[in-house]
Write a protein that binds this DNA or RNA. Structure first.
Lengths: 185, 185
DNA sequence: CCAGGTACGTAACAAACGTTTGGTAGGTAC
DNA sequence: GTACCTACCAAACGTTTGTTACGTACCTGG
């Protein structure tokens, strides 16, 4: 999608009707034919963002195969981190989207819903790990999932700003140490 | 500062020369007299943002008094979280700033430096806690500080998007559980 | 007193923006 | 055949943007 290409090159600041139209070799009239307003295009851009996130390669999860429990949770979290260029680009766009999303209540609600779903998925993985005895069962799975998502989200932000201080190896170590703390706690 | 008021009302998207000029009852000519370009104003806005963050009230830290170690670390982290309206507003602006910062290498570097300093402070607190035996000493203080900052940063983002799912009480609980895990690990 | 710099305001600039208008081409229904 | 709808383009609209040019107070040092 042209919207995605524009986002990758210019970010949300550069997501203008003209830029998208030019990227797909069309006119701005075409865009307004499909999107009644700029907000509609922004909304669509966030959908595209989510779709791209869903379809992106997940090397760690693939390597984990059909593993269950803690190993799968680790793989999912690892695949979120900006360990390579593509994931760093995707995460940069994602972080940028927080600005436009927070400025518009409806877009914020949609974003909140996306994160809620992500937490839900993660909660399932945590519950699996608890059932396998890999994680303590004395804390609600939802809390552990929310905590894990927070940790990874924050690590993404820090790694984006200071990639030399948070090279892939250190990101992995920090995540593993976090998970080890969860398992021990 | 007028810049701060504009940021609070319209965010970074609405930070225009005219908006700032109107907010301080002056003309755009005045602004260009002090800021050679919009980028300079943006740079200044990020400075103001940092200054506001430095000068904002820190109820938890004050309540903690001259406590040391883990208690002080907890207070500092608590004061970051969006537990009330003012801190939520400040955090919203802060998160929004990531968009403009990530789009400009120089601004990104300045932001990275800010977070590095914050981690440095937190590293000192962690080291204190380790010396007091409140946190295990088998992990580098820098790693623990980076991990704690990641956790809090991510929790801020999630709480901003889903305030009803992350009310102050739950934010506090999640943070305490995280710190307990650190201490036990 | 007066030269010169600092501190502003006024006004305009070109560019870019989102949006609107008017029109063309092609397909479909009757 | 003709009425109508969808898909699209070209062009312009009015507004807002960052920036610049120019004028005028005010102050200060000599």
């Amino acid at each position: 999608m042209a919207v995605w290409r524009v986002l990758a090159e210019r970010g949300f600041q550069g997501l203008t009707l003209r830029a998208v139209a030019a990227e797909m070799g069309a006119s701005t009239g075409l865009l307004t034919h499909y999107f009644p307003s700029k907000r509609a295009l922004l909304k669509h851009a966030l959908d595209v963002l989510e779709q791209q996130a869903a379809e992106r390669p997940r090397p760690a999860a693939e390597r984990a195969g059909d593993a269950k429990g803690l190993a799968m949770l680790r793989a999912v979290l690892l695949d979120i981190l900006p360990l390579d260029r593509e994931n760093a680009d995707g995460n940069r766009i994602w972080v940028s989207s927080w600005d436009v999303a927070l400025a518009d209540p409806e877009l914020a609600a949609e974003h909140a819903e996306r994160y809620r779903r992500a937490r839900e998925n993660m909660t399932r993985l945590v519950a699996d790990a608890q059932r396998l005895g890999e994680l303590p069962a004395d804390r609600p799975a939802g809390d552990l999932a929310a905590a894990a998502q927070s940790f990874v989200l924050g690590l993404v932000v820090q790694a984006l700003f200071a990639p030399q201080e948070f090279p892939p190896a250190r990101q992995t170590e920090l995540l593993d140490a976090y998970l080890a703390g969860l398992a021990a706690g």
